[in-house]
Simulated scan of single mutants.
Amino acid sequence: MSLIVAEISLSEIRTSATASYSNTAQPSGSDPQSQGWVCTVANLPAPTNQLTPLQEAMKRVTDSYANAQQSVAQIQRTITTQITQDLSGVATSLKTAVPGVFA
């Protein structure tokens, strides 16, 4: 139960072997091969600069992150300003309440 069973098949490829055929008389004499879908439209539309759905989602996340950073920075500035003003008021109140301490 704990052993892995694998079935493999091997082919020997000789490096010294030579081809037993020569070039065909004409390249079109070889067998046709399918190489996938071929576009036969003569006038293809110009490529657009539209984003893929994944790119659009990433752009929205990036934009939201940038907006959040700006909001957080504004909140930090507001808090810092408010604390500075409050502490300045406390220092002024202490100076007037206890003269001579802050000399």
Rank of each mutant, 00 (worst) to 15 (best):
A6N: 07
S30K: 15
Q70P: 01
S20Q: 09
L51M: 05
E12A: 05
Q70W: 01
P47Y: 00
P47W: 00
L87C: 07
S71C: 06
G36R: 02
V41H: 01
T62P: 03
T40G: 06
S88A: 05
A17Y: 06
E12L: 14
S20G: 14
A57P: 00
A66I: 05
E12V: 10
D86F: 15
S93E: 15
K59F: 04
R60Y: 02
A25Q: 12
A19W: 13
R14K: 04
I75L: 11
S34L: 08
W37Y: 05
I8T: 13
T15G: 11
A57D: 09
I75G: 05
P27I: 01
T81M: 11
F102L: 08
S88Y: 10
E12R: 08
R77T: 13
T78H: 06
Q55D: 03
T15S: 12
Q74D: 09
T80S: 12
S11I: 06
P99E: 02
K95W: 15
S93H: 13
A6C: 12
L3R: 09
R77W: 07
Q76M: 05
P45Q: 02
P27A: 04
Q26T: 11
C39W: 03
L51Y: 02
I83F: 13
A42L: 11
A97T: 09
T18C: 05
V101S: 11
Q69F: 01
T18I: 08
A103T: 10
I83Q: 07
Q85S: 08
G29V: 01
I4M: 15
L3S: 10
I4C: 09
S88R: 14
P47E: 00
T78A: 10
L54D: 13
E7G: 10
V5S: 15
T52P: 00
Q76D: 10
